[in-house]
């Protein structure tokens, strides 16, 4: 279980996360949504102790991440596929991670098998495609057979087969009683695999409810995507324009 309580993270004057509270329960997949720059990755970095909160707390199974006795067995983390030295082979990268917890080579081979990387395990990670890197990141998160998984955009860059695999994987993990917190921008995907979604905008909580409830509560929303777009309409900080629009009315939709 992941508990985030009145969490605030400021970078200078930017409030990346602002008094955010939510809980990701065990046995469920919690989708973590929000526009670009909403603070999803920042929240995850604070939860796993890479960054300190400005105020508030974040705990996993009731403990601060830094106080976990065996973090890899408690929490599997994939924040960014570029968390690998490009000169190291996938196998050696995972082995180095495994060795911090005395995890066996056998388990390393296992997660390589689970993520389908057998044929490239001996290749340097710098030569990997986006999706291969993403799979390597997921393999690292699975190493310690953790009770909690924190995955930042895990399907980003995966092929359709990979997307389906991640969907099944997180479902299985949650059904085994684990906690899964997963951020994504793919609404259809989340509607298929998440039990509950936490939606944030500009660092603040916008909604925290089961997927169906979110849809039902929004007026006239037929899908999670509709509901999400309604909920975040005022929180989108970076909005694209069509080529025509930007040519004729350059200031329309300005975000500044």
């Amino acid at each position: 279980m992941i508990e985030v309580e009145s969490l605030t993270k400021r970078y200078g004057t930017v409030r990346a996360v602002d008094e955010l509270s939510f809980t990701a329960h065990s046995g469920a997949v919690t989708g973590f949504l929000g526009p670009n720059g909403a603070g999803k990755s920042t929240t995850m970095r604070v939860v796993v102790g890479l960054e300190r909160p400005t105020s508030g707390t974040a705990t996993v199974d009731g403990r601060r991440y830094a106080d976990l006795a065996a973090p890899l067995h408690a929490v599997g983390v994939m924040l960014d596929a570029r968390s690998v030295h490009p000169g190291r082979t996938a196998f050696r990268h995972l082995l180095a991670q495994a060795r911090t917890h005395g995890i066996s080579r056998k388990r390393v081979d296992e997660v390589i098998g689970m993520t389908g990387l057998e044929s490239v395990a001996g290749r340097r990670a710098g030569t990997f495609s986006l999706g291969m890197g993403q799979r390597l990141g997921i393999a690292g998160a699975l190493l310690g057979d953790p009770g909690t998984l924190i995955l930042d955009e895990p399907v980003n860059g995966l092929d359709p087969d990979g997307v389906l695999w991640v969907r099944r994987l997180v479902r299985e993990l949650a059904d085994e009683g684990r906690t899964v917190l997963l951020s994504s921008h793919l609404m259809h995907e989340l509607a298929l695999c998440a039990d509950r979604v936490v939606i944030i905008g500009k660092g603040r909580l916008l909604a925290d409810a089961p997927v169906q409830e979110i849809i039902d509560r929004s007026t006239g929303a037929a899908s999670l995507e509709d509901a999400y777009l309604q909920l975040t309409a005022d929180s989108v900080q970076y909005r694209g324009r069509s080529a025509d629009d930007s040519a004729t009315t350059p200031t329309a939709g300005s975000t500044r």
């Binding site: 102790g49 976990l68 973090p71 570029r82 911090t100």
Partner: peptide, 12 residues
């Protein structure tokens, strides 16, 4: 290289 993310989540 960003390896620090995997390193320091394993050894907080």
């Amino acid at each position: 290289t960003g390896t620090f993310r995997s390193t320091f989540t394993a050894v907080p």
